[in-house]
Design a protein around this nucleic acid. Sequence first.
DNA 1: TGGGTTAGTAATCAACTAATTACTAGAGGC
DNA 2: GCCTCTAGTAATTAGTTGATTACTAACCCA
Lengths: 216, 216
Amino acid sequence: MSRVTNDDPSEHPIRERMPAAERRELILGHASAVFGRTGYAGTTTEQIAQAAGISQPYVVRMFGTKEKLFVEVMERALGKLIVAFREVIRLRDSGEIPADELGARLGQAYVDLIEDRGILMSLMQGFIQGHDEVIGQRARAGFLEIYRLLRDEAAIPADDVRSFLADGMLINTLLAIGMPDNFEGDEAATELMTLSFGAKLDTVLCAASERPARPA
Amino acid sequence: MSRVTNDDPSEHPIRERMPAAERRELILGHASAVFGRTGYAGTTTEQIAQAAGISQPYVVRMFGTKEKLFVEVMERALGKLIVAFREVIRLRDSGEIPADELGARLGQAYVDLIEDRGILMSLMQGFIQGHDEVIGQRARAGFLEIYRLLRDEAAIPADDVRSFLADGMLINTLLAIGMPDNFEGDEAATELMTLSFGAKLDTVLCAASERPARPA
DNA sequence: TGGGTTAGTAATCAACTAATTACTAGAGGC
DNA sequence: GCCTCTAGTAATTAGTTGATTACTAACCCA
């Protein structure tokens, strides 16, 4: 059962040996998904290893400790989020989108990140791990980095930034609580999700249904 | 080292034996705080036992499993939140507070719950544990219960409820990430927290400083 | 006052988990 | 064809951790 297949055949071609840098990215991607689902303490390095199709010791040796791996996952997620936001800001600055659409576009960019499994969720798991010395410090710094990016680079009024972040945290919570996977036509849930995700609701539900959640 | 003292002398008088119901409440209170800080998977029953000043097996035996204990903690937190909200709604209905202040009063009531250690945090930890079969189900039901309470009993427009919940989730995240404990005069952090907690900021910082966080 | 009920603990266990060590095999240069 | 570096695993371990069992002591009522 060792080198046979990757358990997620949709992701990468089956290959036995792989350059370390590439393997690293592969692990980070899977770790992001698993950490995002079950949190830092709730995830084992063995689960990540299985998801990535390699052995548990290799995961540990490549990142040193589970904690360092998690921090890298957070760092990576934060980086992708920042890139996505910067791109929207650039489009506004270059006049390719009207200035008054900035907020909506940023929101769309945020919701679009749901499709990249685990990005928003692993970030959220990092936020809630604030009591941890090293994870917490990085999480706080990252959160404030986003705040400053929106306030200073995007030049959004501070209270609008707060409101935008609040909407994001609600979206994160709805995702983490598993609302898109298990709302079964509940009227209140449907309404709340429609209001929260807007026109992107089908995107969210689609991304949810692709997951190995409840077979429904 | 067995029956000597309660490690949190401020909480309860030192007593050796205690009726089960009372001990139960004591455990739930401490469990709420510990779960709120370190999450479901990150918390051991031993930590809860130590906080409550009893032995680990007794914690387990009183609640059956760690999972059942956590669900009870969530249930209790949810109950207190609902009671607090209902009280505000009642004051509005009886004319004791003007109708247009409802939102602000509800927000105040929410922030006030921070003083009851662990209530908001253990709830949030439950929300983020949505993948868990039983915890997730209870968390989703609870979240929607709050939504309906605000929309139907308080008669708040649906999108205002969404916005209110979003603000709550931002507050939760700021607390979980440990922002009040470690912002060290950071300009952005101060601004964001002032905007998020409003006039209640000192209450929050006070509640934070009482915790055994960084000895500063 | 004594016996049953209730509150609680010590000892222990089996399962799990992050990390370490020592080993194997493939790839590429020369 | 050898030799070294790189990619990767099997085996193992020390430390946790939730849960179980068996026991003890306090309380209370007849």
